[in-house]
Simulated assay, not measured.
Amino acid sequence: MSGATEPVRSGDELDWDALESHLRAHLDLPAGRPEVRQFTAGRANLTYLVDVDGFRIVVRRPPRGALAPGAHDIAREYKVLSRLWAVYPPAPRALHFCADASVIGAPFIVIEHRAGEIVRDHIPPSMTHHPEVGRRLSLALIDTMTTLHAVDVDDAGLNDLGRPQGYAERQVSGWLDRWRRAAPDDGPAAMEVVAIELAESLPAPQRVSIVHNDLKLDNCQFQADDPDTVSSVFDWDMATLGDPLFDLANLLVATQGSAVQTASPEEVIARYAEQSGADLSGLAWYEAFARWRSAVVVQQLYNRHVRGDSSDDRLAALGALVPAIAADARRALDDR
């Protein structure tokens, strides 16, 4: 994992001595005092770059404060990344899992560090010389998505990652439960209405695959000289076995409004259909779900700011976005 880093934000410090002692007890680290910086891209899990005399590793732990059941599942992320790397090269290898929350205040995982570029709200200077670079990056993401969805779960040792039967139903009911836990008293009524309509029109899956559940441009890494290949995929704490069209819809919704000029939704859908052979005639349901789910995520992030569980000032403006996202989800269902 790589990307922009900054000095550790105030409030996100860990017990560095305890972390170093634990890492040295379980990993072969060089001599020397670790230098720690914080990755800037993520808004939830706390992710740190630990550099010991040029040997770099990544430490990830859940955010502070109350968490929704099943959210920020670091143990799940370790399970995936300790196995998937062997058959899916974009998955960085997990090196260690610590379940003992007393070390740094929460369970955490250690992942190999990979150098490269992460694209968030602009094209990195090292890649701006490529023609149609944004379009090529987004099509590369579709390529790596279809490759992930084609992974044999037995070969990956991940046939126990989830329960595919009833996956769509659990997605709706699970995210509705999260909404009800997170919703303010004046939350948009559309959120409950959309949940009912989604539950009444569940699609039948065409196939089962590994589902990343948050596969988007800024959860990927590229090499500066190659915008046509995703070199790494990050943030696997929600990965499971289920209907792969959830991944495609989540990506389409995440891409809309991006400051990066990506491929059009029509081109993205056509690329996925060509490579996967999937029938995408029912994709509108999945897109409506993805919009609705994103409203829940935004509300959860905003609540972390309100409670003082995060020192990330970017979260302060998110609460005002929820009603508009809920309305978009309602329109997406009505327009099917």
Score class of each variant (00 low, 15 high):
332 A>L: 13
326 A>L: 05
49 L>I: 01
247 D>M: 05
128 T>Q: 14
228 D>P: 01
248 L>D: 09
289 F>M: 08
182 A>S: 13
243 D>R: 05
215 L>F: 13
38 Q>V: 00
140 A>I: 03
326 A>N: 07
62 P>G: 06
261 Q>H: 11
201 S>P: 00
115 A>Q: 13
37 R>C: 10
293 R>P: 01
286 Y>G: 00
96 H>E: 15
316 A>E: 11
177 D>I: 06
162 G>M: 02
237 D>R: 06
211 V>I: 12
24 R>H: 03
126 S>D: 10
185 D>L: 15
65 G>R: 03
90 P>D: 11
238 M>W: 06
33 R>A: 12
46 L>Y: 08
96 H>M: 13
329 A>K: 09
39 F>A: 00
197 E>G: 15
167 Y>C: 06
84 L>R: 02
260 V>C: 12
254 A>C: 03
203 P>V: 01
170 R>N: 04
285 W>R: 06
105 G>T: 10
4 A>L: 14
112 E>G: 10
232 S>M: 12
39 F>S: 03
243 D>P: 01
188 P>F: 05
237 D>W: 02
268 V>I: 15
11 G>R: 04
299 Q>A: 10
90 P>H: 11
262 T>W: 10
19 L>I: 03
153 V>W: 10
5 T>C: 08
153 V>L: 08
265 P>G: 06
4 A>S: 11
305 H>F: 14
112 E>H: 05
191 M>K: 09
34 P>M: 07
216 K>Q: 09
234 F>V: 12
287 E>C: 13
19 L>A: 01
142 I>R: 01
290 A>K: 08
21 S>C: 09
182 A>T: 08
81 L>P: 01
66 A>T: 06
262 T>G: 08
218 D>L: 09
44 A>S: 15
28 D>C: 04
69 P>S: 09
93 R>W: 07
165 Q>I: 14
266 E>D: 13
45 N>R: 02
94 A>L: 02
36 V>K: 11
285 W>Q: 05
93 R>D: 04
109 I>M: 13
79 K>T: 15
255 T>Y: 15
212 H>I: 03
23 L>H: 04
263 A>P: 02
255 T>L: 15
301 L>Y: 07
69 P>R: 13
115 A>T: 11
194 V>H: 04
40 T>M: 05
218 D>F: 13
255 T>P: 00
82 S>Q: 02
49 L>G: 13
296 V>I: 09
257 G>C: 01
167 Y>M: 11
233 V>P: 00
247 D>E: 11
14 L>F: 08
166 G>H: 08
183 A>T: 01
62 P>N: 10
158 L>F: 02
120 R>W: 14
84 L>D: 00
83 R>D: 03
185 D>I: 03
72 H>P: 07
233 V>G: 01
7 P>Y: 03
244 P>W: 06
109 I>P: 02
320 A>Q: 14
296 V>K: 05
218 D>A: 03
39 F>Y: 08
218 D>K: 04
219 N>M: 11
41 A>V: 14
124 P>I: 14
78 Y>I: 04
234 F>C: 05
319 G>M: 06
290 A>L: 07
199 A>R: 15
134 G>A: 05
15 D>P: 13
205 P>T: 09
92 P>E: 04
77 E>N: 09
190 A>K: 10
188 P>S: 08
78 Y>R: 01
25 A>D: 15
72 H>K: 12
14 L>H: 09
232 S>V: 14
147 T>I: 07
302 Y>V: 09
274 E>V: 06
51 D>K: 01
